[in-house]
Design a binder for these strands. Structure first.
Lengths: 215, 215
DNA sequence: ATCGATCGGTTACAAGTTATCACGAAGACT
DNA sequence: AGTCTTCGTGATAACTTGTAACCGATCGAT
């Protein structure tokens, strides 16, 4: 977030307070989860009492929406940076996992059970498309001798989720499959469903990655 | 739940009210999600006011815990029934999906973001083991020529999650993979993350199933 | 059959939450 | 300086979960 230079001091102060609010919100989410987020507690932590916070965010939903957007953007940045640094699909997948485990509640806020009231803002789907585009680019380097499945044919005419990326539909399929398979493992791991099972989730993750990338 | 015959009328009444409470709770969860569950509203719907509900459930956590247990048991029964009716792995997977889509919030209550305070009761992991055992039995009918992965070796010494099922670790691996891959798709679908993407989730589901069962 | 303890339900209350309103103080701009 | 927007305040409303005290009906035992 550079380039916040030419602004009125009022707006700079406002932006800074909004940032502090989000910071405290993330602290609360990291410890107690998103549904335990308390605007009152945040305000108290910042030294101001109760309704002052409503000058900065219209309500709980708006704050959460912005947190979701930030989290999405954070994932997009991490994936993009890894790709620009030369990471292949395996590298992107491990970066994805690192990002998920770094803050489990953040991952669940983005990909987990949706908050009852709120609806995803439109720009979030744009960020998602950008993430998928990076995955597709990474897969485009590989070559696959994959038999065309019925789903591949279906994808040929349904590719707006990938920002109409010109890659062949088999590649789109791979990218989509990478997403769903990684999410299957990561969401279960992050939600603690592997807890009492004994095996090492990292090994399962690696095995799934190997299986996808041509056994 | 047969064999609830020889009970004191007090206990029968109590059991019936507890059942009605859970019914209303499921209605609320199905419409507004688990985090919007209101004990007051449930009590009001049942004609009794507020704190009377605490005679039946010690608090929110205990009610949710029982709902989670019931949902788990419901899935276990559905899978078990399909298996006993002769369903193969494909049939079990579709039954799993049918169960998930039948009540999305129920699926998310079990496999989604965990509720902040509550912890999964011990018997839930036992039910999970029973489900996994059915999956493993279904896979045991298949034969695989799979190269032993490092994860397979790891699973050989970490199989208590499958109730120490005697199947070879490659089969355990398949069953575990089925779970995580199906959950990856189903959780994203149920949480609405495929909403604006355009493609048909059912075809993606079928494609993943085909890919897993030996392309 | 009467007596007594337990159970079920009630109202009242405490401590929280989100959110709105009306007001005062302080900075910013003309 | 004067005005005007913004920020923070306390008061208030309508909620929530959960506890405490009380009262009546029912069930079990004598």
């Amino acid at each position: 977030m550079p380039e916040s230079g030419t602004k009125s001091p009022r707006e700079r102060y406002r932006a800074q307070v909004r940032g502090e609010i989000k910071e405290r919100a993330w602290e609360q989410i990291a410890t107690a989860g998103a549904s335990a987020l308390s605007l009152n507690a945040i305000a108290k932590q910042l030294g101001m009492s109760g309704p002052a916070l409503y000058r900065y965010y219209a309500g709980r939903d708006e704050l959460i929406t912005e947190l979701v957007r930030d989290a999405y953007q954070s994932l997009a940045d991490a994936i993009r940076a890894a790709f620009d640094a030369g990471a292949d699909v395996t590298g992107l997948a491990h970066e994805w996992r690192r990002w998920a485990l770094e803050d489990p509640h953040r991952y669940l806020l983005v990909f987990g059970t949706p908050i009852p009231g709120y609806r995803a803002p439109d720009d979030v789907t744009a960020i998602a498309s950008r993430i998928m585009a990076v995955l597709i680019d990474a897969f485009a380097a590989h070559t696959f001798e994959s038999p065309a499945t019925p789903f591949d044919a279906h994808l040929d005419s349904h590719r707006q989720w990938a920002a109409d990326h010109p890659a062949p539909s088999a590649v789109l399929h791979r990218a989509l499959t990478l997403w769903t398979r990684l999410h299957g493992i990561l969401s279960l791991e992050v939600a603690g469903h592997f807890a009492g099972m004994g095996f090492d989730p990292a090994l399962l993750f690696a095995a799934e990655l190997d299986a996808l990338l041509g056994h």
